[in-house]
Write a protein that binds this DNA or RNA. Structure first.
Lengths: 221, 221
DNA sequence: TGTACGAAATTGGTCTGACCAATTTCAAAC
DNA sequence: GTTTGAAATTGGTCAGACCAATTTCGTACA
């Protein structure tokens, strides 16, 4: 543990990562206790905790007092909030964000046209229906809008693309809320969502991309 | 400091974030010392350190022994590596990787055709020349191949896209080495690189995408 | 007055130990 | 076999010690 110039917590992270790969640990599996890691790696418990806090913030692990430390399915939402507050102080970053989101969603919808299963499309339709109900009640469908786009990217069946997309859309949340708060925008957005959905249902990639691009532009993100 | 159900380190993160915004701190600015934060926030120094380690891993801050803690320009490379190492344990993930890399590079090269500056193109040409020299010496141009593609994505002038691309290509490194080790592949790859570069020089997006796609396919990643 | 040097102070890095709350495990009783 | 309670284990927080690295400050000298 003294062979490297890295800080202890980084060494601990490496060992944890190695352990996960060596033991083929998956989401839900339990890591050794803090004290055991401390003994095993011959470092102080504080160093172990520092490493674990870093992983916890990334939502890669979950700690339960008295229960232990568990691997978590990769999420990243809180992480995104934190990064956003540091990053989005520059105008260039905002431009790149919008552009990158468009790139990811356009490619995702192309793949969705090939790969969306019947079940996918039914789940997506349900989300669309929830959106309509919200709009009819005069409420702002922020969460439903998120879910609509999330389904879109999930229908690509490229998990990595979805992971990349999540932080992108989180950054756009504030802009989305403003957009949907504009008079008449929710019903128009619903209309656009329906056209996007129909294009994917018809497996028409060119039309889907066209409708999606128009939608994102009209949303003024 | 005892008003919330959150863990201490999360409370500390919130306060640090508040401090940064309140004092309009920028990259390079110094945060209060660990001991000062500990006093100010009425928490143990360990809790402060746990919070700082989490931010450090995100490369949002930099700590210098004896010197203090500084805000860093947002990087994110290590972050992405760590997330990827957790995500990329599944076969499906590997398929998604190749596909996602193709998506990112194709979109990047489209943007490069619009945005590459004269300086960009000169730097890229220099990389291509290094590649040629390596091949003529009979050496395997692994690093030069990486740099060629990195330049390609940088010419898009979308920093975010480049950040996303880096881990994608890191995970393709092994496959790249195998590919370039095949007899005759380096010279062929050089030829393909030149055609890609020429297309971007001509600002011909369709041709650039076509040449790039063929190249990535021939590389058999 | 300006510069150089050394000591003191400050800062981050690591470890240990104490103690508490939450959970899990284990043994005994029924 | 089930239930209950005690003991053990686990994470959470804090304090303190001590070391290495850096910064600051005071003094001496030109």
């Amino acid at each position: 543990m003294t062979q490297s110039s890295d800080k202890m917590y980084l060494e601990v992270l490496k060992e944890i990562n190695y352990l996960i790969h060596a033991d083929d640990l998956k989401s839900g599996d339990r890591l050794p206790s803090e004290r055991e890691l401390s003994d095993r790696l011959d470092v102080g418990r504080s160093s172990v905790r520092e490493a674990l806090r870093a992983l916890e913030l990334l939502e890669l692990i979950e700690t339960r007092p008295g229960g232990g430390t568990y691997i978590k399915a990769a999420g990243g939402r809180r992480l995104v909030e934190i990064i956003a507050s540091f990053i989005l102080k520059e105008d260039k970053a905002r431009e790149d964000l919008g552009e990158t989101r468009l790139i990811v969603e356009k490619e995702a919808i192309r793949l969705a046209c090939q790969r969306a299963s019947i079940e996918d499309l039914e789940a997506w339709k349900a989300v669309l229906n929830d959106y309509r109900k919200k709009v009819e009640k005069g409420e702002t469908p922020v969460e439903e809008d998120y879910l609509f786009h999330s389904m879109l990217v999930k229908c690509s069946h490229n998990h990595l693309l979805h992971h990349i997309w999540i932080p992108l859309v989180e950054y756009s949340k504030a802009a989305l809320e403003e957009s949907l708060a504009r008079s008449g925008r929710p019903i128009l957005s619903l209309y656009e969502h329906e056209r996007i959905y129909e294009a994917v249902l018809q497996r028409d990639a060119a039309k889907a991309v066209e409708e999606l691009s128009a939608h994102l532009q009209n949303s003024a993100f």
